[in-house]
Nucleic acid binder design. Structure first.
Lengths: 182, 182
DNA sequence: GTCAATTAGTCGGATGTCCTACTATTTACC
DNA sequence: GGTAAATAGTAGGACATCCGACTAATTGAC
């Protein structure tokens, strides 16, 4: 629920009691949850709301770095999947399964990547149902350069201590595993 | 970048050496990052990729619970912002600021909520630029019932220990704060 | 006081995601 | 072997998000 930028009373102007340097809006929301008698759900609400907001922040940072390369994060993920694969080509279906997105999202991303001549569709040699996607030379170059930018500007400095990063990855791995993610 | 459902070689079928019970694909991706000489960026990549995936999982769970109520999470957030506010009405602009979304997203959400007769637009008494949004009686009822469902089915059982939940919230608060979120 | 700058909302367009068909192939069962 | 079931991909539609542009109203500077 978030409710950011709020001081105590959500729709009242800043109280006259002082500046009150902007408390964490998610902590505020959790407090309101407790007041409503939903105390047992407050921590979970705070966790999920935090996740939503952190995702939005991370995505914005990543997209800003990728913008000069003319690709979005969704398309970058497709490029990197191909970049890191052995053969350099993958069936559409496999891309969707690896990235955990719907097949139609893959069709969409590959359409745009193909228009930008970063990937190429080609028929599977034996199974005519399958469409293979492979990087072009410029697609490979872009994947490498974009990754270097992302590594330098985002991944190397995620805005958390290395301990916090490790804990975050561990906790989220637990959550993903409980959801049957792997 | 995730690359889920992968055994070691990304585009090779499951090796003949055994079942190899599906390793964490994000851990796999981090390993590949290191192999490419990007070891210093690997933890950050893993953290951000985990965030993306965890967000997707959480959103899917939440949307599933809200579906019977006929609202999406975006619209539910608007309803709850109004539900928890004192006056029960807020300017469009304030809603966008609190939820940290673009004004046009607020226009979109309020349009749909208004069509569903869950909220109502009304003019601001003194500032004619401002449009106030307020809950209708059915909007208030829906907000309460939807929250009870969400609390019972998602927030009370986030799929993590209470310690993990507390740590997650704390770490993400750090990340949000570093990004100037509050 | 008058006109420029700011602020609030909306509209149209681009992107991404999902869902429900629908077509084309391949597999599998009798 | 021939037909039904499963699999791969695409098309169209619904939503959400952002951006840039545009209108209306309020503020502020001279």
């Amino acid at each position: 629920m978030d409710m950011r930028r709020g001081s105590s009373p959500y729709d009242e102007p800043m109280s006259a009691q002082g500046p009150k340097l902007a408390a964490d809006p998610i902590a505020e929301a959790a407090r309101l949850w407790e007041e409503r008698g939903w105390a047992d759900a407050a921590p979970g609400m705070a966790a999920i709301t935090s996740l939503m907001r952190a995702h939005q922040i991370a995505l914005t940072r990543v997209e800003a770095v990728l913008k000069p390369f003319g690709v979005t994060f969704a398309r970058y993920e497709v490029l990197m999947l191909l970049f890191l694969s052995r053969r350099g080509s993958l069936p559409m279906r496999t891309i969707g399964a690896r990235l955990q997105v719907h097949q139609t999202s893959v069709t969409n991303a590959v359409d745009r990547l193909e228009q930008a001549k970063l990937v190429r569709r080609s028929p599977h040699p034996t199974d005519r149902r399958v469409t293979l996607v492979e990087l072009t030379a410029s697609g490979r170059r872009l994947a490498e350069r974009a990754t270097e930018s992302l590594n330098a500007e985002v991944f190397s400095e995620p805005g958390l201590s290395s301990t916090a990063v490790a804990n975050l990855v561990r906790i989220l791995a637990q959550l993903r595993q409980d959801s049957g993610d792997f």
